[in-house]
């Protein structure tokens, strides 16, 4: 590859990459989630047995990761809409990305205990 032709975008490119990756991950989870919910039409036991998997420590941690992906995709999606429809959106896209990351960190900190409380209580008692 000739020198100097590799595109290395900054905030704009990396937020686009993160939006893609989180979007694909969320979509694959959605397939699984509709299938597991469909088990309510089989029997209450089949459904409860499957939901028990969601309550194991590893999968509970993955739920926190799912919340992280969805929150980023939602907040950055609103930023994309602002870039497209707000007349000054493109000029402030960087500032909006740092706002997105700031709100994301606050919400992730707030969601830590509520989402993981099942595992935390199981592992550390009380």
């Amino acid at each position: 590859m000739p020198a100097g032709t590799l595109y290395r975008g900054r905030e704009g490119m990396w937020s686009w990459v993160a939006h893609r990756v989180t979007g694909v991950l969320i979509f694959f989870f959605l397939f699984v989630h509709v299938l597991d919910t469909a088990l309510v039409r089989v029997s209450p036991e089949a459904y409860d047995d499957t939901v028990a998997i969601y309550k194991t420590p590893l999968v509970n941690l993955m739920e926190y990761g799912l919340v992280a992906a969805i929150l980023f995709h939602a907040l950055n999606g609103l930023r994309v809409i602002a870039v497209d429809f707000w007349s000054k959106g493109a000029r402030y896209q960087k500032q909006m990305l740092w706002t997105v990351m700031g709100v994301w960190i606050v919400l992730m900190a707030g969601a830590f205990y509520p989402v993981l409380q099942h595992t935390l209580r199981e592992l550390f008692g009380s």
Binding site: V40, P44, Y47, Y54, K55, E63, P114, Q117
Partner: peptide, 19 residues
């Protein structure tokens, strides 16, 4: 997400009866 994973005990209460 708020209803299923955050409020009222998080994922603990999810089950057939909750649905």
């Amino acid at each position: 997400l708020l209803i299923q994973l955050v409020l009222d005990g998080g994922v603990s209460k999810v089950g057939f009866a909750f649905v």
